[in-house]
């Protein structure tokens, strides 16, 4: 039950992009085409799940025992960057097809604030290991939902008659804000349960 609530919350209510405004850079940068958006979101989901688990372990097995929990942020950045690089190399060698699909998005994720955000939020909400994993994957799926929907909108925007002053990024920003307002409708769902 609790896991279900966490995943729904991560996808809809506390959507990383549209409610918490994390990971805006890839959201605007890689949402021009639908297929790249899908590749990016698969990679983000994978890395967020993995980072949640590893960072949870770092926090509870290294930082807390040594009493240096205040180094959380810098330690997590280090771990995530190293981890993503490592995963990229492994995928590149072992599975060229998988690398084709998501490997090229991995370098972009090393410093993605949504990944760092999910790792820190897991600790702040004192989730256990399983809950952290679920929250990480759920956050990734929320990211996927937002970016894929947005890419669909942007593909249509290319064909729409938009005033010259608003063409390109301005209209994308406006569309993104409308998206965010729409997702506000989910806030208050399950309030008090989490």
């Amino acid at each position: 039950m609790r896991l279900g609530l966490i995943i729904i919350s991560a996808i809809f209510i506390n959507n990383f992009i549209l409610s918490q405004f994390l990971g805006i850079c890839p959201f605007l940068g890689v949402s021009k085409k639908l297929d790249t958006a899908v590749g990016m979101s698969v990679a983000v989901t994978f890395v967020m799940g993995l980072a949640s688990v590893i960072c949870w372990m770092i926090q509870y097995y290294i930082l807390i025992p040594f009493g240096i929990g205040y180094l959380q942020t810098i330690a997590f950045i280090l771990v995530i960057a190293g981890l993503v690089q490592f995963v990229e190399m492994v995928i590149k060698k072992t599975s060229p097809t998988l690398y084709q699909a998501l490997g090229i998005y991995l370098p972009l994720i090393t410093t993605n604030c949504a990944v760092l955000g999910v790792a820190i939020l897991n600790i702040n909400k004192s989730y256990n290991l399983i809950e952290s994993l679920v929250n990480g994957v759920g956050g990734g799926l929320g990211f996927a939902l937002a970016i894929v929907l947005f890419a669909g909108v942007r593909e249509r925007l290319d064909l729409a008659p938009i005033p010259k002053a608003l063409d390109g990024f301005p209209i994308a920003m406006i569309a993104a804000s409308l998206f965010s307002i729409a997702f506000l409708g989910f806030s208050g769902l399950f309030s008090g349960l989490l």
Binding site: L63, Q85, M89, K93
Partner: peptide, 24 residues
């Protein structure tokens, strides 16, 4: 302690990445 722990983590990841870049 923080220096050793973070430094240790960094060195650990450094070595792993260096090894991986050759291996993979």
């Amino acid at each position: 302690l923080p220096v050793i722990v973070l430094g240790g983590l960094a060195i650990f990841f450094g070595i792993v990445l260096a090894y991986a870049s050759k291996k993979f």
